[in-house]
């Protein structure tokens, strides 16, 4: 379970990116995180994954606090940023091996998962090429594969569908479902409201650093669409 308890984060003592946020994401949840640009989505995702510090509150991932036990928490997390900035001097396979070494994945299991996902995302035959020769979409796929090979219990994704072709987007959604069936949880930000509406069992809407709506998707949207709800909230106050 991912528990976010009263998390606040301020930039330069002025901009409140996250304002006392509390959320609970259960194993098996595909949790969509929606908000306007600059609402605080990326800040919260980076705080959960230990990339940035936060001022108040705590975040625990399956019992491991990201503040007091960062390594324990990071071992079960996979974070995928909105931009696939990865080591361009390495080849695809070298990058995956680097992640495999960092997460201490056995050689056989690593090879098995690399084969499975690189075939699925159709980049198996370019894995020996340097990443600097990859297109944006290919880099995005490598980042996704690197997240999947250590079989995370919590997957955090920032705009995961941007830059992916329709087939890869479909496959990623299938992978989400497969992971959730095994007891993992998925927490991702998106601007594609149709995807969130169809794919997520739960959603949270963030506005100026505060969670303004959250819960089961059908409870949040009721008889409206997610787009209508989102615009309604955005136009309030």
């Amino acid at each position: 379970m991912l528990k976010i308890n009263n998390v606040s984060k301020t930039y330069n003592n002025v901009t409140k990116a996250c304002d006392n946020i509390s959320l609970t994401i259960e194993p098996g949840d595909i949790y969509g995180f929606i908000g306007h640009n600059g609402a605080g989505k990326t800040t919260l995702l980076k705080s959960i994954s230990g990339i940035i510090n936060f001022d108040a509150g705590d975040i625990t991932i399956f019992g491991h606090s990201i503040k007091s036990d960062p390594l324990g928490a990071k071992r079960i997390i996979a974070y995928i940023p909105d931009n696939p900035d990865i080591y361009e001097s390495l080849t695809g396979i070298e990058y995956l091996d680097f992640i495999g070494d960092v997460f201490n994945i056995s050689r056989d299991r690593r090879q098995e998962l690399i084969d499975k996902y690189s075939e699925m995302f159709e980049i198996k035959d370019v894995l020996s090429n340097p990443i600097n020769s990859y297109s944006h979409g290919m880099k995005q796929k490598i980042v996704i594969i690197s997240a999947l090979i250590h079989e995370p219990k919590a997957m955090l994704l920032d705009e995961p569908f941007v830059g992916l072709d329709p087939k890869a987007s479909f496959l990623l959604k299938e992978v989400f479902k497969e992971l959730c069936a095994k007891g993992s949880l998925i927490f991702f930000s998106t601007h594609v409201l149709e995807v969130a509406e169809k794919l997520c069992n739960k959603v949270a809407i963030i506005k100026q650093g505060k969670i303004v709506a959250n819960g089961l998707t059908h409870d949040v949207i009721k008889d409206q669409s997610l787009e209508e709800i989102f615009l309604e909230i955005l136009n309030e106050g």
Binding site: D97, D101, I114, K124, V126, S128, N129, S133, S135
Partner: peptide, 16 residues
């Protein structure tokens, strides 16, 4: 971008 396809499968290597 010059992404050539390789017929030979990429083999994973485990290190410390």
């Amino acid at each position: 971008k010059n992404t050539r396809k390789n017929a030979k499968a990429a083999v994973s290597k485990s290190r410390s």
